[in-house]
């Protein structure tokens, strides 16, 4: 009975990622990825007002997802711990910054599904710090309630759907971004000239 009470009053989850391999045109660039602490160690904690504590750890999943997506997009990627670790050999630096993340349970919204929403801003720079582009991408996912589905499982499924959408939009937006297109074509011209 104690375990059941614990289950009802706490929501302690670490999200997981199960997103397919990305079909992307490989961009011939060596890219450094810097995850700020707010992204790398992100955990959603809701202060207990009605005795129902929430702790949802998403940082490791976000890093895993974005590394997977960027690896499929570029010829070479490396993750750097500090922004100072970016080398002049790197063609680009990408800084994914999580700006907001929200969760909702069917018991609170009275809708028949779990929801997860996340808002990111991607900052694309040269290794000397010159900004090339900055664009927002969001991901939204739901998971239906079902018999014997726990809150943990519902939130994990909804988060994975949101991660999947975030990854998809990131690939498409990155390739369609005008500033990035300009940088890519100028780089191509430089390579052809040399």
């Amino acid at each position: 009975m104690a375990s059941l009470t614990g289950c009802a009053n706490k929501l302690v989850v670490e999200t997981t990622v199960n997103v397919p391999k990305t079909l992307a045109e490989e961009i011939p660039a060596d890219v450094a990825i810097y995850f700020p602490d707010t992204t790398r160690n992100h955990a959603y904690v809701e202060p207990s007002r009605d005795g129902k504590d929430w702790s949802i750890t998403t940082g490791p999943s976000q890093v895993a997802l974005l590394n997977q997506v960027f690896e499929s997009m570029f010829a070479s990627t490396s993750s750097v711990e500090n922004i100072e670790d970016v080398l002049s050999e790197h063609d680009l630096v990408i800084i994914p910054e999580l700006q907001d993340m929200q969760f909702s349970l069917p018991s609170k919204t009275h809708l028949g599904f779990y929801e997860v929403w996340m808002q990111y801003e991607f900052s694309i720079k040269l290794s000397d710090g010159t900004s090339i582009a900055m664009f927002p991408v969001n991901g939204y996912g739901t998971a239906p309630t079902a018999f014997l589905t726990s809150n943990d499982e519902g939130i994990q499924q909804a988060a994975n759907t949101a991660f999947r959408e975030l990854g998809a939009k990131l690939v498409v937006r990155f390739n369609d971004n005008i500033e990035i297109q300009k940088w890519l074509s100028s780089r191509k011209d430089q390579n052809e000239d040399s």
């Binding site: 059941l4 997981t16 199960n18 391999k21 943990d152 994990q156 499924q157």
Partner: peptide
């Protein structure tokens, strides 16, 4: 047992790759 199963934490079951 069924109620405990309901509280168990599991990830996505089908690998996407």
């Amino acid at each position: 047992c069924l109620m405990l199963t309901a509280c168990a934490s599991t990830g996505s079951k089908t690998p996407a790759n």
